[in-house]
C-alpha cells in the first residue's frame, strides 16, 4: 500500500502532476492503440481493431533493396548532427555569454536565430539560387573565373557538406538558447570565488561553466539519441529537391518511406516505419540512460 501512503503524503504533488498526466493519456496514450496498425492489413470496413493481422509483413519493405545504405546515411548524419550540434551550440552559447557588450550580444542572438524561422521550402529556394547549374550564383562566379561549372544537383561529392552546413546554419542559433539560458542560471558566486582564487577566464569556462552545463548536455544528448533513426524530412527531401542522382548520400529512412508509400497511401506500412524508428531509438535510450545512471544518478532521464 505504498502507493496509497505516497498518495496521501504527497497529495499536492500528485495534484500538480494531474493536468499533465490527463493530457498525456488523452492525446498520447489513447491514440497509441494505432501502433497495432503496423501488424495489420487495415481496411475501414473492419476498423483498426477488426482488420486482419498479418504479422511483420508491413515491415519487410524497410529491409529491402538499399536498406543498409539508407540506415547508414541516417545514422551517420545524425551522429554528426548530435556531436557537432552539441559542440557548436554550447560554444556559441558561451561566446554569446562572454561578449562584453550586452547590446551587441543581444543583436547577435536575434540574428543567429533568424534562419530557424525559414521553412524548408524557402531554404531550398535560397540554396537553389546559389547552387543551380544553369543560373546559380556559384556557377556564375566559377564561369567568370574561367573554371568549370559544377552540376551540384547531380554530383554526390558535395552534398554531405552542404547538408551539414544547411542543418547547422538553420538550427544552431536556436538550439544554443537552451545552453544560454542554462548559463544564466549558474550562480555568480562560483565565478566570484574563482576570480578571487585567481582563475583565468578559460579556467572558469572549463571548471565552472561546462560542468554546470553537464546535466542539460546529458539530457539533450539522450533525447537526440532517441531520434537517431529519424531524419529531418525537409532537409533531405526539399533542400536536395529529391534529386535522384544524389540518393547515395542523401537518402534517409524518412525519404525512403515517403518515396515508397505516397503513391499507395498504405497506413499499415507507414505505421510500421514509425514503429521501427521509435523502437530502435527507444532501445538506445534505455541503454544510454542505464549507463548514465551508473555514472551519475541525478543526470539520468528516468
Amino acid at each position: 500500500m505504498t502507493f496509497l501512503y505516497e498518495l496521501r503524503k504527497n497529495k499536492v504533488l500528485f495534484l500538480m502532476a494531474l493536468p499533465a498526466l490527463i493530457l498525456l493519456v488523452l492525446f498520447n496514450y489513447l491514440p497509441m492503440f494505432g501502433v497495432i496498425l503496423a501488424f495489420k492489413n487495415y481496411n475501414f470496413y473492419d476498423g483498426i481493431l477488426g482488420s486482419p493481422w498479418i504479422g511483420f509483413k508491413n515491415f519487410e519493405y524497410l529491409f529491402k533493396g538499399d536498406a543498409w545504405l539508407i540506415t547508414r546515411n541516417t545514422l551517420l548524419y545524425n551522429f554528426v548532427f548530435i556531436i557537432f550540434g552539441l559542440i557548436l551550440a554550447v560554444a556559441l552559447a558561451i561566446v554569446l555569454d562572454e561578449i562584453r557588450n550586452r547590446f551587441l550580444s543581444k543583436t547577435y542572438q536575434t540574428i543567429l536565430i533568424m534562419p530557424y524561422f525559414l521553412s524548408w521550402t524557402i531554404v531550398a529556394l535560397i540554396f537553389y539560387a546559389f547552387l543551380s547549374a544553369d543560373k546559380g550564383i556559384i556557377n556564375q562566379a566559377l564561369t567568370f573565373m574561367g573554371m568549370h561549372p559544377i552540376n551540384f544537383y547531380s554530383e554526390t561529392t558535395y552534398w554531405p557538406y552542404i547538408l551539414i552546413f544547411v542543418f547547422f546554419w538553420k538550427s544552431v542559433g536556436y538550439s544554443s538558447i537552451i545552453y544560454l539560458a542554462s548559463i544564466t542560471g549558474i550562480s555568480p558566486e562560483y565565478y566570484e570565488a574563482a576570480t578571487i582564487d585567481g582563475a583565468s577566464k578559460w579556467q572558469q569556462i572549463r571548471f565552472i561553466t561546462i560542468p554546470c552545463l553537464k546535466p542539460i548536455i546529458i539530457i539533450m544528448t539522450i533525447l537526440s539519441i532517441g531520434k537517431i533513426f529519424y531524419a529531418d524530412f525537409g532537409l533531405f527531401y526539399q533542400v536536395t529537391y529529391n534529386s535522384g542522382a544524389l540518393y547515395p548520400v542523401t537518402q534517409v529512412i524518412d525519404t525512403y518511406v515517403y518515396n515508397g508509400l505516397t503513391s499507395m497511401g498504405n497506413y499499415g506500412m507507414t505505421a510500421a516505419a514509425g514503429l521501427y524508428q521509435s523502437f530502435v531509438g527507444f532501445v538506445l535510450v534505455i541503454i544510454t540512460n542505464w549507463i548514465v545512471k551508473k555514472m551519475d544518478k541525478d543526470s539520468a532521464l528516468f
Binding site: 498525456l24 498520447n28 496514450y29 489513447l30 491514440p31 497509441m32 492503440f33 494505432g34 501502433v35 496498425l37 483498426i48 533525447l223 532517441g226 497506413y267 507507414t270 505505421a271 514509425g274 514503429l275 521509435s278 531509438g281 527507444f282 535510450v285 532521464l301 528516468f302
Partner: peptide
Amino acid sequence: FFTMLFNGGLVP
C-alpha cells in the same frame, strides 16, 4: 518520455 518516441500515428 515514452510519448516522445511512440505515437499512434495520424489516423488514430
